[in-house]
Design a protein around this nucleic acid. Structure first.
Ligand SMILES: [Mn+2]
Ligand SMILES: [Mn+2]
Ligand SMILES: [Zn+2]
Ligand SMILES: [Zn+2]
Lengths: 147, 147
DNA sequence: ACATTAATTGAGAATGAGTCTCAATTACAA
DNA sequence: TTGTAATTGAGACTCATTCTCAATTAATGT
């Protein structure tokens, strides 16, 4: 199953570095993987508490860093209200369009876009390892409302 | 001249909104426009003090926000150490490649990339107004060192 | 030039995300 | 089970940014 596999990846990653698979890390991993979309550390922490589980804010922050390193989640961006993460396990890489009117977030993927970036990197002698693209503007709904 | 024109744009923008062109705003505008690349609020503030000019941190932050609104500068991104701005006056829109080894920042522009994004927006019924693309990886120099 | 008045300033307090400390706890290999 | 190094968590701390508000000042009209 998905979650089990996520656990395996995390467990292996930890063991490889002499880190320990603690109850707290397990809880945070689980809640993280059950997140469908984007999330922030504080909400995750509150979710854990509401579920009657145990993990401090400090552990949440620390564990999210590790989960980033092992690729199970990604730091999407920093906003004025803090860092936004995204569960990457089972999700494919994609980019975002953000509606500056309603906050709606559209995920999209374009093979052509990826290839083009690759070509642009080559032109600069640059070896790309990742990227973030956020397009801001107005979503379909908000455009209609404006009319 | 360039700076005079920047001043005009800012002055007009302020007047249109019933805001005032104060000495402090003038100083901040000037230092901002003389910035060639990227900068952060604190450095700008220190630069102003070192030049014997007068403007508080509060005013720097407040004025940078206004300069963003009127398009003379842009908030490039938030990092763990704060917000990075960029003087946009006289500069054309471009995107960035960031070397995760040495911190080197490469600016690039691709008409094709812009067109492709436009097309992707259309496909989603999205009206794009701006975007940020940061490609992370290893610059030419750092790739050689690795060898 | 002068008065009027609302916008602006700045010192320092407040906020808030994230990190750090360190004594107590715990995972885990032998 | 034991030994030991990794981990935890409460709260102190950091640091960027925003807020407060009394004093100052830009802009407008006379
Ligand atoms: Mn996403
Ligand atoms: Mn740039
Ligand atoms: Zn919208
Ligand atoms: Zn480099």
């Amino acid at each position: 199953m998905k979650k089990a596999h996520g656990k395996l990846i995390f467990g292996t990653f930890l063991k490889d570095r002499g880190l320990r698979f603690t109850k707290e890390r397990s809880v945070i991993l689980q809640k993280t993987l059950s997140c469908s979309g984007h999330f922030d550390p504080e909400s995750l922490y509150l979710q854990i508490r509401e579920a009657g589980l145990k993990a401090s804010r400090a552990s949440v922050y620390r564990t999210l860093s590790i989960l980033c390193e092992c690729g199970l989640i990604e730091r999407v961006k920093k906003t004025e209200r803090g860092t936004i993460y995204e569960n990457m396990f089972g999700h494919e890489h994609h980019d975002h369009m953000l509606c500056i009117q309603c906050g709606n977030l559209i995920e999209f993927y374009s093979e052509e876009l990826e290839r083009l970036q690759e070509a642009l990197c080559k032109k600069q002698g640059f070896q790309g390892t990742g990227h973030n693209l956020e397009i801001r503007g107005y979503c379909r709904k908000c455009r209609k409302k404006k009319r």
